[in-house]
């Protein structure tokens, strides 16, 4: 098994979810009475298809407004719209129809950085993602793994304290997945709170500090990763790990 260790500064940003509910077409799809994300992270959200993992992530990030309940970041209640200090990477990276460097410049320009500072930051980010040689290449011509790395770099360019990742490696081969996991571990070790939705139990084992198991729109279990994989507290956890948990 590959070794991806998350060491370094602890994520200090805390997220509190209280009485969160969301319905779609008259059906309740999320019901989270209480959830706290604290500790070093990363947090992995697991669960079968349709369990509400991505919906929860979108609510936490403010892309979807919940019907009721509150989400607070470091004690400050978040309003609708993407919260400041947060960034999200989607399952399918949405890259602008521009060059690799221009995708990063787009975000940095919004921070009103001077040209020289912006170029320096772009070079640093490209170096970090191993994309320095592809700076002038159209972003849409990148391979799947490179595109996802660029999406992560672009998210990092916003300077987030919280990074949400929605199945970032679901369409990637093992080599590309390994590179992404190394990046995630490095980001988490720099103190960014990483919350990751994944179907890959191995990935959750490698990366996560704590596990949230979702089932039917509810949090079935929230445990430290070591404890969850060694001895799940709930029947849902046991069934999920044995591959028997369906919606």
């Amino acid at each position: 098994m590959r070794d991806v260790t998350v060491e370094g500064q602890l994520a200090s940003t805390r997220i509190d979810v209280t009485a969160l509910r969301l319905s779609r077409s008259g059906r309740q799809v999320l019901d989270v009475p209480h959830l706290v994300l604290e500790g070093p992270g990363p947090t992995a959200i697991l669960g079968p298809n349709g369990a509400g993992k991505s919906l929860l992530l979108r609510c936490l990030h403010g892309l979807i407004a919940q019907d009721t309940g509150t989400i607070a970041q470091d004690g400050r209640r978040l309003r609708s719209g993407a919260a400041a200090g947060q960034a999200m990477v989607f399952q399918r990276p949405v890259l602008l129809r521009r060059s690799v460097a221009a995708n990063l410049a787009f975000v940095l320009r919004r921070q009103r950085l001077g040209h020289a500072t912006r170029q320096k930051r772009i070079a640093e980010l490209l170096e970090e993602g191993g994309l320095s040689t592809k700076a002038r290449q159209p972003a849409r011509s990148l391979s799947g793994g490179e595109a996802q790395r660029l999406a992560i770099l672009r998210a990092l360019a916003t300077g987030p304290r919280v990074l949400f990742l929605d199945e970032p490696t679901s369409a990637l081969d093992p080599a590309a997945t390994a590179k992404i996991e190394t990046m995630i571990a490095r980001i988490a070790s720099e103190g960014v709170r990483v919350v990751l939705v994944t179907h890959d139990i191995g990935q959750a084992r490698r990366l996560a500090h704590d596990i949230i198991l979702m089932q039917g729109g509810r949090v079935a279990e929230h445990s430290p990763a070591g404890a969850f994989f060694a001895r799940p507290l709930t029947q849902a956890g046991r069934l999920y790990l044995s591959g028997e948990l369906l919606i």
């Binding site: 979108r58 892309l63 719209g81 400041a84 960034a87 989607f90 949405v94 787009f106 916003t158």
Partner: peptide
């Protein structure tokens, strides 16, 4: 294709138009 990503990057609907 872009709406969620642009919203995530903090752009309003109006600010999305030039992009």
């Amino acid at each position: 294709e872009y709406a969620e990503q642009l919203k995530s990057l903090g752009l309003s609907r109006l600010a999305s138009v030039p992009v």
